[in-house]
Amino acid sequence: MSADTLVADEAGPAVAAAVPASGARHVWRRLRARRGTVAAAAVIALLTLTAWAAPALTALEGQDPDAYHDTLVDSAAGGVPKGSFGGVSTDHWLGVEPGTGRDLFARLITGARVSLSVAVGATLVQVLIGVAVGLLAGLGPRRVDSLLSRATDVMLALPHLVFAIALLAVVPSGFPRPVLLALVIALLGWAGTSKIVRAQTLTLKSLDHVAAARLGGSGPWRVARRELLPSLAAPVITYGAILLPTNIVVEAGLSFLGVGVKPPTPSWGQMLSTATMWFRADPMYVLLPAALLFVTVLAFTVLGDGVRTALDPRAASRLGVGTSKGAGR
């Protein structure tokens, strides 16, 4: 029996709740205690599995996401899919794309693959840069700190969308587009993480165990790795979990504007952008990608919220931390 459960047994649940329980097992228990979080995790697991197995699933359906089917759309009516509900049939489980006749199921799940990997990749790189810059600012000499802090402020003041669009145009088209997207989103969005990590590092630096390690002759690298990173894990994971859904929306937005994922690679944002021309004739073509994007972002938001409360029940983000400026508008 661990020390924490002993406290809980003797002093009752009120005290146990006031003591910030640490350790993976407690966090896990708190995560599982909320039905919403569990449901969100289940949805995410399903989505991830679908995205991962997308090539196999399209093969099972017997379709290719990039193959055109002129015969399935009514060219006399401007390219509307033949048949009801956007051309649903046993061959095309969710119908076909208006205009081109490409298989919608195949494109949607391949799009999930793109969306999720771009968002996850962007978040990982974002957090890595943020932690590195934050640690350097918090532990480094004063000059380094003020330089990095100014840089962070400039990054926060940047009109992100302008720079994202510009950066996406700079790089030659030979560079793999999803990787580029993830990198651009990450390069523009690390400032929040680094601010948090710097503040935490400054607080932690004054704590006894860190001071002891420093006095004991440990170098800054060793102090960072052994004494700081374990305590930084919780806020960093929380922040990353909040960033992830924002990144999904940003990717969809950039693709919607036509500067993100390039055709023929499918992406939800791009489909919705095409759908603005088709929503009268083929509502299914709007509703399916919209619903998928909505459910995905919602699930990740709920999970992020659950992770936050599980890791630090008292902290509430007052200024909506993590909602990067204007991401969704």
Binding site: F279, A290, F294, L298, R329
Partner: peptide, 22 residues
């Protein structure tokens, strides 16, 4: 509120246009 934070504006816009205009 949660649903609101999870929806990009182009989804809301498309759905509103489908419903109220079309």
């Amino acid at each position: 509120t949660l649903a609101g934070t999870a929806t990009p504006v182009f989804i809301v816009g498309l759905l509103l246009m489908m419903l109220f205009c079309a």
